[in-house]
């Protein structure tokens, strides 16, 4: 039976695509409000810190950030190829390493809270 590493890339990609579709638009709205000078009450340090101190909160934040990063990295890899960049292995390594580094950093920051 043929073995492929593709499921390893594909599962987080599909999960990330779903997470981005459901959560990223509303999160962008929240930071957009902050950008316009109307910081929503829930984005105060106390509220955000309390949410990120909770184990479930850490898991939710990590899930959203890590899956979105991985999905974006995979989609960017396809985008580079479609725009005519043929150095796919190099592009894949750079993007996946960036996604993994971003996820690890997020985990470290969350554990510091």
């Amino acid at each position: 039976m043929a073995k492929s590493h593709k499921p390893v890339v594909w599962f987080p990609f599909a999960a990330g695509g779903t997470v981005i579709a459901f959560f990223i638009p509303v999160i962008v709205v929240l930071t957009f409000m902050a950008a316009l000078g109307h910081i929503p009450p829930g984005l105060s340090y106390e509220k955000m810190h309390a949410f990120a101190s909770n184990g479930l909160g850490k898991l939710i934040i990590f899930g959203v950030v890590a899956l979105s990063l991985w999905s974006s990295a995979h989609r960017l890899r396809c985008t580079f190829y479609d725009f005519g960049v043929r150095a796919d292995t190099l592009v894949a390594i750079v993007l996946y390493v960036a996604a993994i580094a971003g996820s690890l950093l997020s985990a470290v920051y969350l554990l510091q809270i």
Binding site: L69, R75, L76, S106
Partner: peptide, 9 residues
């Protein structure tokens, strides 16, 4: 979306 994810990190 990718750039925004970096902003989240």
């Amino acid at each position: 979306v990718g750039a925004y994810c970096l902003l989240l990190v």
